[in-house]
Design a protein around this nucleic acid. Structure first.
Lengths: 197, 197
DNA sequence: TTAGGTTCTTATCATACATCAATGCAGAGG
DNA sequence: CCTCTGCATTGATGTATGATAAGAACCTAA
């Protein structure tokens, strides 16, 4: 079992015994996925949380017009899941797909619940993840409500400089809620501005 | 102490002794606020959760151009807080303001933490609130990414028919991320459509 | 009742962004 | 090496929504 990243991540974020941590990690499965492969599809029940050991995932939805909308990217050391589906046990409205050949740790939802009950520190940790998630979502809403394409892009660069380099532009556009063409133009204008100044 | 709504709300959502519930409620303060009055302002630390007994609140931000963006409405039986500020103990980026004369229960953040530690059922309850919050935020992002003004408005009507009638149109527009003028147009077009069919 | 402030509507014009279509370009695979 | 395919760019055009301004409708309070 090779889940080095998860172990170190938990060790530095969970204030419990190393042995206990490895016993947690032992209980999880590792899965390798090829680029393009899906870990979750719409209408499926999402019963796990994925922790990205290596690679890059995306979570997205498809609207009635068939257009994709990216909710989040998940690079190394990120957790991704459809909490809505996992927690309320409902069919998911989202897809989770690999953008690169990846390796993920699959953590069972029941197992998460169990750990939360048994280990207070884990419950706290989980709580923190939830709060971080909320923080992130709220900032995004704020951005969508207030900022024009250019500002959204600039913010994206600042927050996810690494991801910017790893995904096709069309996906960044989808994340920002604009078309690839618009993003291309925004980039052009920015380049010109920077050149002048 | 008159916090009837919170008591019944907790009773039907928290699987614990009624006595324990009233001991919880006893520990909270009641506050009456007049219309327009603020419960939280930008840069303040938000140390409480508000539960709306009576009335209606709004949570909003103000961007660099001075424009207001409504993140959420909170009518009776809703909790509202800036989790970001409360949990991470940072100055808030938001305002919370009464849209009607209201009565709220003020629940101290420390008290929430304490209860979570002491009463597992309360911790579960809190967890559920967090998940609901996330669900709500995600749906909103999806809507902002995919839907045009008209669809956003229709969705709003469906989800919050009560709130629609209680707040000025300009605030609905702010929630939807469009101008009041645009909303007026959208409404006009919808009215014409409905008249024809 | 009038007066004065909001809020809502309406109209015109401006603009950001979408859409559609063509071309360029680079990496993958034969 | 060449071709194929997907992605980025660019231009022309359309459209939804924003900005501004003015008037209408509505409330509230004197």
């Amino acid at each position: 079992m090779n889940s080095f990243n998860l172990t170190t991540y938990l060790t530095s974020n969970l204030n419990i015994d190393e042995k206990e941590i490895s016993s947690i990690v032992e209980n999880c499965k590792i899965k390798k996925v090829k680029k393009e492969q899906f870990l979750l599809r719409e209408d499926q029940h999402c019963n796990h949380t994925f922790f990205v050991e290596k690679g890059l995932l995306r979570q997205f939805s498809i609207d009635e017009k068939g257009k994709e909308h990216i909710l989040s990217f998940a690079p190394e050391n990120w957790f991704v899941t459809d909490r809505q589906s996992a927690y309320f046990d409902k069919p998911s409205a989202y897809y989770i797909q690999a953008l690169e050949d990846s390796q993920v740790v699959i953590i069972d939802e029941n197992f998460v619940q169990l750990l939360s009950k048994k280990i207070p520190a884990f419950s706290d940790f989980n709580n923190k993840l939830l709060h971080n998630h909320i923080r992130h979502l709220q900032n995004r809403i704020n951005l969508l409500l207030s900022a024009v394409a250019e500002d959204r892009y600039l913010q994206f660069i600042k927050m996810y400089p690494d991801i910017l380099l790893r995904v096709p532009q069309t996906m960044v556009a989808s994340y920002l809620g604009i078309t690839p063409e618009s993003l291309s133009r925004v980039r052009k204008e920015l380049a010109q501005k920077n050149f002048k100044s």
